[in-house]
Design a protein around this nucleic acid. Structure first.
Length: 816
RNA sequence: GCGGAUUUGGCGGAAUGGCAGACGCGCUAGACUUAGGAUCUAGUGUCAACGACGUGGAGGUUCAAGUCCUCUAAUCCGCACCA
């Protein structure tokens, strides 16, 4: 007995699927594997929101289609379970992060199952459990061994009132998000991953990826390759020299001063006695300025003179050495040659502090070259280099410098090394022991995991929470056996998410993070689906880790994610991002209770362009319910006709129905392939409309055709409405899951019509229509059109210049 | 400031350079009905309506432009003193 579609139908089939293990990945079929991965989610306390349904529901539809097309789908799910929100929640409520996180995971698993997605839960990965983070620690050690993990001093955001380190997202307009205090900087020794070693490859390999162009562009900018030169300046009267990086070596002869970043190590040596006070004050002031203010382009430039002079590497002139916060310590060499005539920033600075401004470039062919003139031109006031173009000057000046070992061409990247230390509790402990004698010693692999202790005071008080657990901290040095202290910082959660796709297919492995031979068969991920907000960080980190593991011999492929899709964002009804504080959050639950999960899924598929997203509106969700009802009724009709022998001929109506049927198969197959679910559903509606039309118009039916078309409709619809179509499939008396059926294949021949209506244009404007046999060739079409009486009337007294015939579409007659 | 994307009926959204507005919502009229927030049928870009005009705006290429090119505006996103 079959029921009208509702939530109960969802539950019925979810149970059948689970009992029959329908969606278990079969490793024997690895040659047909398709690794479909949705970015795993953070186990938040609230229920699944519309975004989860939109992301996971629709990519599941895609996976279901691929399954029916014969792929062995590997579609795992897991949880990115470490991170700040659980820790903050704990500080507020006293509920331990582990307890709240595991509770949330349980709830989310249940809800994800109710969505009816084909996740294979046997391969679940939860990052906050030792069986995962043990291997996260292994990853750290592997990078350490290969020289890709290192320690150096780096500033953290520091709230002096809360006495704690703040993540960037906790700094709001330079203030602590909790207490509004001005945030300052504090230097700590922290761990970094050397992603910059891979800058060039990360850039080069982008080309081969099937990723959105926009995302590639974001990564390109993020890596920020720039070609220039490094030029050495000697300091007058001292045995010190420093290098500057410039992309405009052609302007070298216009250098009138040089600027160092205030935090540059050389500053102490270069500062003369009478300037010490001013320099020290300026350095202090820089430290207090928040990153955001310092990086603001609108801020007036400031700086102080160090008292020292540098020697121009070509003309030998003495130029002043300044420090200024518009020069960044972290980019290039942290030193800049200032050419005020040809750089806006230097110009502004030079005017303010009355530094000389020398023009060395003039515009080509009388271009407006008012100073500051930043464009390329012709070199002037540059001695032997006068008359060269900027392009030539860049090369020749550097060649000249190279002869004297004072300069060379150089490529710089904006990309910085990845800071992975976090002064937090709820994360993977960094597997390092600090020993007075031996320094930082990695924890031997056999001692992994370094367990995260449960009983820890993690309220913020200025220390990493783990530091307060004596039991955790005090340990023998693995190297000398003397007293040691564990590293108290934890790893950035982006480390967890940078390789989780490697753990999924081998998640039970107790001896290794993953088995290389197996992983080389299962990876790379064939289709990766997730939000565009991860375009820069997560996706770049994962690519880097993949390359690092490849070079260490653990994987044999270059890139983790071959093909990437970003789903759009469903906004609140007001067009703004949904958030509790704005009160515009839409809960899917109400709709699911009323209509069932499939109607909701179909509505998400139909109502939005998947890649765009858009503001939520439930106008039209009823139409999906109506659509399901209409399908139900046509299935009923099909059942009534069972056993009756109809005609077998293919008349006009039959051909028309068959045409729409095959158009739908082709359309849905092609559109869904590229995640165009809205047009896929539209084509199914057209097929349903055609079925109704046939049913109403034709007395003596070709029942076999009618029923075949309904079968196709159900199979095409099944990825979008899995529970509903299973129910319908069963109602028709079929045995077994519809998802074990083959995906329909279209027949091009069925899509050839006998006659087609084409448009008759005169000078590009539609003036009439004509029915033309599709078999007619260009010349025949032209003849038929030109002999038509109406066309003759239209062309009365006009001179025909040209006739354009586009087969099956139109004829355009160009007249004078 | 730099880079990228988007802009199509009342609405969500379709259109390999080839009949703009598929499909759906909404709306209008009708049918059925005790009833209708159900269902079915028909219609629905705009206007001064037998025609003309229509894809943010202005030019251009083409027999033909929503689609290609140039300029421009608005919105969104990314980067942001990167030497």
């Amino acid at each position: 007995m079959n029921m009208p579609y509702s939530k109960e139908v969802d539950r019925k089939w979810q149970k059948i699927w689970e009992d029959s293990k329908l969606y278990k990945f079969n490793p024997k079929n690895v040659d047909k594997k398709l690794y479909v991965l949705e970015m795993f989610s953070y186990p938040s306390g609230s229920k699944l929101h519309v975004g989860h349904w939109y992301n996971y529901g629709l990519s599941d539809s895609w996976a279901r289609m691929k399954r029916m097309q014969g792929y062995e789908i590997f579609q795992p799910m897991g949880f990115d379970a470490f991170g700040l929100p659980a820790e903050n929640f704990a500080i507020k409520t006293g509920i331990h992060p582990h307890d709240s996180t595991m509770q949330n995971i349980e709830t989310m698993e249940k809800q994800l199952k109710e969505m009816g997605a084909t996740f294979d839960w046997d391969y679940e990965v939860i990052t906050c459990l030792p069986e995962y983070y043990k291997w996260n620690q292994w990853l750290f050690l592997t990078l350490y061994k290969t020289g890709l993990a290192y320690r150096k001093e780096a500033p953290v955001n520091w709230c002096p009132k809360c006495n704690t380190v703040l993540a960037n997202e906790q700094v709001v307009d330079g203030h602590c998000e909790r207490c509004e205090t001005d945030v300052t900087k504090k230097n700590l020794t922290q761990w970094f991953f050397k992603i910059t070693d891979y800058a060039q490859e990360l850039l080069d390999k982008l080309e081969d990826l099937d990723w959105p162009e926009k995302t590639k562009k974001i990564q390109t900018n993020w890596i920020g390759r720039s070609e220039g030169a490094e030029i050495e300046f000697k300091v007058a009267d001292q045995d010190i020299s420093f290098k500057v990086f410039t992309t405009r070596a052609d302007t070298l002869m216009g250098v009138t001063y040089v600027v160092l970043a205030p935090e540059n190590e050389l500053v102490a040596k270069l500062t003369t006695e009478e300037n010490k006070k001013a320099v020290a004050e300026y350095q202090d002031a820089t430290k207090k300025i928040t990153e955001i203010d310092r990086l603001s382009t609108t801020k007036e430039k400031t700086g102080v003179f160090t008292g020292s002079y540098a020697i121009h590497p070509i003309n030998g002139q003495k130029v002043e050495i300044w420090i200024a916060d518009y020069v960044l310590g972290s980019y290039g060499t942290g030193c800049v040659m200032a050419v005020p005539a040809h750089d806006e920033r230097d110009f502004e600075f030079a005017e303010k502090y009355k530094l000389p401004i020398n023009r060395v470039i003039k515009g080509k062919d009388g271009a407006n070259d008012a100073l500051p003139f930043g464009e390329y031109g012709i070199l002037v006031n540059s001695g032997q280099f006068d008359g060269l173009t900027s392009e030539e000057g860049k090369i020749q000046l550097v060649e000249k410098l190279a002869e004297q070992n004072k300069g060379q061409l150089k490529i710089n990247y904006r990309l910085r090394d990845w800071l992975v230390s976090r002064q937090r509790y709820w994360g993977t402990p960094i597997p390092v022991i600090h020993c007075e004698k031996c320094g930082a010693v990695p924890v031997p692999e056999k001692d992994l995991p370094v367990l995260l202790p449960y009983d820890v005071e993690f309220a913020p008080d200025g220390e990493s929470p783990l530091k307060k657990s004596a039991e955790f901290m005090n340990v023998a040095c693995p190297s000398c056996g003397g007293p040691g202290q564990r590293e108290a910082d934890t790893l950035d959660t982006f480390v967890c998410s940078s390789w989780y796709h490697l753990r999924y297919p081998d998640n039970k492995n107790k001896d290794q993070a993953f088995n290389t031979e197996w992983i080389n068969k299962m990876l790379p991920v064939d289709k990766y689906i997730g939000g565009a907000e991860h375009a820069a960080m997560h996706l770049l980190y994962a690519r880097f880790i993949n390359k690092a593991l490849r070079d260490a011999g653990y994987v044999n492929f270059d890139e983790p994610y071959t093909s990437l899709i970003h789903q759009g964002t469903i906004l609140g009804p007001d067009g703004l991002r949904m958030s509790k504080s704005k009160g515009n959050v839409i809960s899917p639950d109400v709709y699911i209770d009323e209509y069932g999960s499939d109607v909701f899924r179909m509505y998400l598929a139909f109502g939005f362009s998947y890649i765009e997203g858009g503001p939520w509106s439930d106008d039209g969700i009823k139409s999906m319910s109506r659509f399901a009802n209409r399908v139900e009724r046509i299935v009923e009709r099909s059942k009534e006709l069972a056993g009756i022998t109809g005609k077998t001929e293919m008349g006009k109506e039959e051909k028309e129905l068959n045409f729409v049927r095959h158009m739908a198969i082709k359309g849905v197959t092609k559109d869904a392939e590229i995640f165009q679910f809205n047009t896929s559903i539209a084509k199914l509606m057209e097929l349903l409309n055609a079925l109704y039309k046939y049913e109403a118009d034709v007395e003596n039916k070709n029942i076999a055709l009618f029923q075949d078309a309904i079968n196709d409709l159900l199979r095409l619809l099944s990825p979008f409405a899995p529970h509903f179509t299973e129910e319908m499939w069963e109602a028709l008396g079929n045995k077994g899951s519809i998802f074990n059926e083959k995906w329909p294949v279209w027949d091009e021949n069925a899509m050839i019509k006998d006659v087609v209506e084409i448009a008759i244009q005169v000078n590009g404007k539609v003036k009439g229509r004509m029915e033309i046999p599709t078999s007619a060739e260009q010349q025949e079409i032209e003849k038929m059109v030109m002999e038509n009486d109406e066309v003759k009337d239209m062309l009365e007294g006009k001179q025909i210049a040209k006739i354009i015939v586009i087969k099956n579409r139109l004829v355009n007659i160009v007249v004078k």
